[in-house]
Structure formats: C-alpha cells, structure tokens
Simulated assay, not measured.
Amino acid sequence: MKFVCNKQELLKGINTVIKATYTKFQKSILECIHIVAGSTLTLDAFDTVTAIRTNIYGDIEEPGQTCIPARILQEIVSKFPDSEVTFESQEPSGVRLSCRSSAVVLQEMDASEFPAFPEMEGDSFTLKQGDFKRMIDKTAFSAYMGEDKPVFTGILFESGEDTLSTVAIDGIRLAKNTIHMEVPGAIRAIVPAKSLKEVARLMGDEEESVQVSFGETACYIRMENTDIYTRLLDGEFMKYESIIHKTYKTRVKVETKLIEKSLEMVSVLAKEDSSNLVRLEIGQNSIELCSNSEYGAAKDVIPVLVEGEVLKIAFNAKYLLDVFKVVEEESVFLEFNDSLKPCVIRPAEGDAYLYIVVPVNVRS
C-alpha cells in the first residue's frame, strides 16, 4: 500500500471518524482507524454501536489497507508540517508515514479483522442538513445522561401523517421538534443521542442534503462523503403525549431573548447554590425573576402578556435556559396550571417545537 494526501485533508478525515473508535480496551482492532486505499481513499471506525466512514482525496500509488490506533495516528499527523503526507507499507507489519523531513514507522493491526461497514437498509428519505441538525440540536440536550435508563439516553424519531418529529426526555424535562415532510412508512425508532450529537457536528452546508433510513435495528445517515451507521436502542419509549397538558390556568407570552438574558443574569447567583434555583412571580403584566445564594440576591422584572391567574413557581435555572438558547422565534408561550405542575413552552405560532420543564417544589 502506498498513497499520498494533504495533511489537512487527512486530519479532517481522521477527526471525522475518530469519535466512532472503541476506547474501553487498548490492543483491540476497534481502537483503530481502518484505512483503505482502493479506487478511493476511505477511512472508517466502529465502536460496536456507531460506525463512521468517510472518503478523502489522495493519490493512490499502490492499493491496500491498514489499521492504525486512532489516538496515535491523530497525534502524529497533527504534529506533521502542513504539507503532503506519504503512507507506505513497511514489512513485516508496519506503516511508514513521512512528511517533508519527518518520518514515523507505526505498528499496524491486521486490517482483514476489521468489521465490514454495514449496508444501508430500509426505505430512505432526504432532507436538508440544516433541518436535520436543528432537529438534533433542539432536542438532544433533554436526553437522559445516566446509565440506569438506557432507552431515555436516545432520541425518538417518529413520523406522522406529514410530519417527522424528534423527542427526548430525561424525567425532568421533555423536548420535541417537528418538521413538515412526508417520509416512507411509519417510523418510531430510538437513536442514541450521543451518536446523533456527533452527526450534528459533521453537518456541513445547511442547504446540502442528507439521506436517512431506518432498518429494524439501525439508523443509517449518508452525506456527500460520509456515512454513519448507529444501532437503535431497545425498549419502549414513554408515551409522552399523556404528560402534555392541553389546558392551562396561566399563559404568558414573552420575548425569547428578553427572558433568556434575564435568566442568564439571575443564574449568576443561582448556580452558586446547589439547587440552581430561580423563582418566577407572574403578575398581571410582568414576570419577576429572582435568585439567592450565600453571595447575595438577584432580581429582574420583564414585561409580558398574561392570560389567567397570577402564579409563583420555581425552576432549576439551567433547564429553562437550555430551552431558550435553542428557540429561534422572537416570542414564545409559557403555559402553567399551578406551582407543582410542569410548564409547557410552545411557539407563539405554529407547532415546530414543544418543551416541558418540571418545577421545583419549594416552600413559599
């Protein structure tokens, strides 16, 4: 095997696939990046859950393949000067990497043992990368972070009559994002949020397309030069519709940026307290936000439009801020029933998203 490619192009390919390398045990073939020099130059990695494959440009002089530990390969290439990098097999089981006056010989693993990249299954559909990335970004923060409820560490994809939605739940909050499009068949699949976050980071031009399909056990995502495979999570996702209140006693219309800036200000002190608590007092035409800690007290009042009853309620400030940081619309509705029931956050117009945040039970 022998090929030559640009250092930055090679490093981009390495950084694309390295998140899918297996890190729990060294000396495993899965800790490697699999490099194939054939009709094209291909890099792929697989961590038993997610596989990523990408093509990069290179001048292939002799075809072949190799497997090199990902961390070592990344660090070596990143230290090379910005120039052309040459890969060349070296007997009996090594690969020589050279760049200008620098050269390194690395031990390789048996590339024939590396798993074949899974073939795409199921009916596929296409959407813009910008839309797909937003669906992930606007829900992934609500996925569960622990290990005791694996099904909730994923994002649910579900289709409607002419919609595709993503939903994430961690027990304290819910995030749902919806776009209007037709997809083939009925979709209800749970994809690991960790894998989807990596997919979102790889998304390029907003207008470029991404091809998605769901098989019985896996999700497949294809972009121009990169393919991603990730296994679906087993289990039954919560029937979340039952926790969405259809009525409210208090409804507040507020400017998104206004409440985001207010929450950021009072959070300076709130985060110094272990509960990260912010109290909201909803009046006739304003919300008073306040927080306390051993360092002092903060208060801010913002104007809003209020329907219904006045209300005092408290939240973990981070959970509210996470929502307002991803909302792009100018204003939103906050809907309440009482101080112990979840707040529902909806767009002022349309049905593009829905968020639920459970309040904190505090004494008056």
Rank of each mutant, 00 (worst) to 15 (best):
residue 238 M to W: 09
residue 239 K to P: 04
residue 257 K to F: 06
residue 190 I to A: 03
residue 208 E to H: 08
residue 193 A to D: 03
residue 255 E to Y: 07
residue 246 K to T: 11
residue 217 T to H: 09
residue 249 K to D: 08
residue 235 G to D: 08
residue 250 T to D: 03
residue 232 L to P: 01
residue 167 V to G: 02
residue 188 R to L: 12
residue 255 E to I: 11
residue 209 S to F: 01
residue 205 D to L: 08
residue 254 V to E: 02
residue 267 S to K: 09
residue 231 R to N: 14
residue 174 L to M: 06
residue 216 E to T: 05
residue 235 G to K: 09
residue 217 T to R: 15
residue 249 K to V: 06
residue 257 K to I: 12
residue 263 L to P: 04
residue 225 N to G: 01
residue 161 E to K: 15
residue 210 V to P: 00
residue 200 A to Y: 00
residue 233 L to P: 00
residue 160 G to S: 12
residue 164 L to C: 05
residue 207 E to A: 13
residue 170 D to T: 15
residue 149 K to M: 09
residue 239 K to E: 11
residue 192 P to Y: 07
residue 167 V to Q: 00
residue 241 E to M: 14
residue 243 I to F: 15
residue 241 E to I: 05
residue 187 I to V: 09
residue 236 E to W: 10
residue 255 E to S: 14
residue 250 T to P: 04
residue 192 P to L: 11
residue 156 L to F: 15
residue 168 A to Q: 07
residue 230 T to Y: 02
residue 177 N to T: 06
residue 232 L to W: 02
residue 210 V to M: 02
residue 167 V to R: 02
residue 262 S to Y: 03
residue 234 D to C: 13
residue 158 E to P: 13
residue 219 C to I: 00
residue 161 E to R: 07
residue 190 I to Y: 07
residue 187 I to D: 02
residue 181 M to E: 01
residue 163 T to S: 11
residue 250 T to E: 02
residue 217 T to V: 04
